[in-house]
C-alpha cells in the first residue's frame, strides 16, 4: 500500500508515456487529455517547499532557539508577501499591487541577486589559495582557463586570445562536452528504465515498505 502501489502506478504511467511517444494516433487522441490530467496533479507539487519551510521555522520557534527572532522575520516575510501578492493580483491598480511589485523588485530580486554574487568573492579567493600548477593536468587547465578569461573580454592587441578562445570552445570543449553529454544521455535512459521497472525507487523517499 505504502510502496508497492506507487511503484505499480509508476510502471503503468511510464509505459503510457513511452507508448504515447511511439504511437502517433494515440498521441493525437489522448495526449492533450492526459497532459491536462497530469497537470492537475503536478500543480500541487509546489506546496512541498512551503510545508518544509514552515515546518523548519516552526520547529525553531517551538524549541526557543537563540535565533528564533529571525524565524519570525521569515514568517512575516512569507505572510506579507503571500497576502499582498494575492490581493494585488485580483485588484490590479490597487495599492496592494504596487506594494507587491515593489517587494518583488526591491526586496526579493536584490536579495536573490546579491546572495549569488557572493560567489564572485569565494571563487576569487579560492582560486588564489588553491589553484596551483603542480602537475601538467593542472597547468593545462589553468592555461586554458586564462586564455578563455582573457579571450572573452579581449580588445585591441589581445584579440589573438579571442581567436584561440573560439578554437578552444569549438573543438576541445565541444568534444569533451559531447562525450559527457552522450554519457549523460545513456545514463538518463538507463535511469528512466530503472524507474519504470521499479529497480530505482529513491524518488519515493525512505520509509516503510
Amino acid at each position: 500500500m505504502k510502496r508497492q502501489y506507487p511503484m505499480i502506478l509508476t510502471f503503468v504511467f511510464g509505459l503510457i508515456g513511452f507508448i504515447l511517444r511511439f504511437s502517433p494516433i494515440l498521441n493525437e487522441k489522448y495526449l492533450n487529455d492526459l497532459l491536462s490530467w497530469t497537470m492537475a496533479i503536478a500543480a500541487f507539487a509546489v506546496v512541498i517547499a512551503v510545508i518544509s519551510l514552515v515546518k523548519h521555522h516552526a520547529e525553531k520557534i517551538r524549541r526557543k532557539h537563540k535565533d528564533m527572532i529571525y524565524s519570525f522575520v521569515t514568517f512575516i516575510g512569507l505572510i506579507v508577501m503571500a497576502l499582498v501578492g494575492i490581493l494585488g493580483h485580483y485588484m490590479p491598480g490597487s495599492i496592494w499591487k504596487s506594494i507587491f511589485d515593489n517587494l518583488y523588485k526591491y526586496v526579493r530580486t536584490p536579495l536573490d541577486a546579491t546572495m549569488f554574487s557572493l560567489l564572485a568573492f569565494y571563487i576569487s579567493s579560492a582560486a588564489y589559495r588553491a589553484f596551483r600548477a603542480r602537475t601538467w593536468h593542472a597547468t593545462a587547465l589553468l592555461i586554458s582557463g586564462f586564455i578563455v578569461m582573457i579571450g572573452r573580454v579581449a580588445f585591441g592587441p589581445l584579440m589573438i586570445f579571442a581567436d584561440i578562445t573560439n578554437w578552444i570552445m569549438l573543438i576541445p570543449t565541444t568534444a569533451v562536452m559531447r562525450a559527457i553529454m552522450i554519457g549523460v544521455g545513456l545514463g538518463i535512459t538507463a535511469t528512466s528504465i530503472k524507474i519504470i521497472l521499479g529497480i530505482e525507487t529513491s524518488y519515493l523517499g525512505g520509509g516503510e515498505k
Binding site: A120, S124, A127, Y128, L142, F146, M149, I150, V153
Partner: peptide
C-alpha cells in the same frame, strides 16, 4: 576583474 584574478593566481 578577470585580469585581477589572473594576476592573483
Amino acid at each position: 576583474a578577470h585580469f585581477y584574478v589572473i594576476i592573483l593566481i
